[in-house]
């Protein structure tokens, strides 16, 4: 398993296209911390500390489809 970079920030960007190879996570699959982060970031131009069970490029199904960008 690749080692995660520490201290990265994540944001969510609404996306309309879902590629067949995308890793899609339903909100209910996420742990408590990731759920709180998604609820906080969805639809807002904000960043938060990267949640442990989300990775750059993941697509989250919440009130819309959001792609995770972690830097």
């Amino acid at each position: 398993m690749p080692i995660r970079e520490q201290g990265r920030r994540m944001r969510l960007r609404r996306t309309g296209t879902i590629l067949p190879e995308a890793r899609i996570r339903h909100y209910d699959e996420l742990g408590d911390d990731a759920q709180a982060t998604v609820a906080e970031l969805a639809g807002r131009p904000r960043t938060a500390a990267e949640a442990s069970d989300l990775e750059d490029g993941d697509v989250v199904k919440f009130t819309d489809y959001y792609v995770v960008r972690a830097r």
């Binding site: 879902i18 067949p20 190879e21 995308a22 890793r23 899609i24 339903h26 209910d28 699959e29 199904k61």
Partner: peptide
Amino acid sequence: YNRILIKEYAKGKLPEAPI
């Protein structure tokens, strides 16, 4: 498969593969 995403397939929002 992801039982909680099959509704998204039925809605026409998701292809089969990621499920």
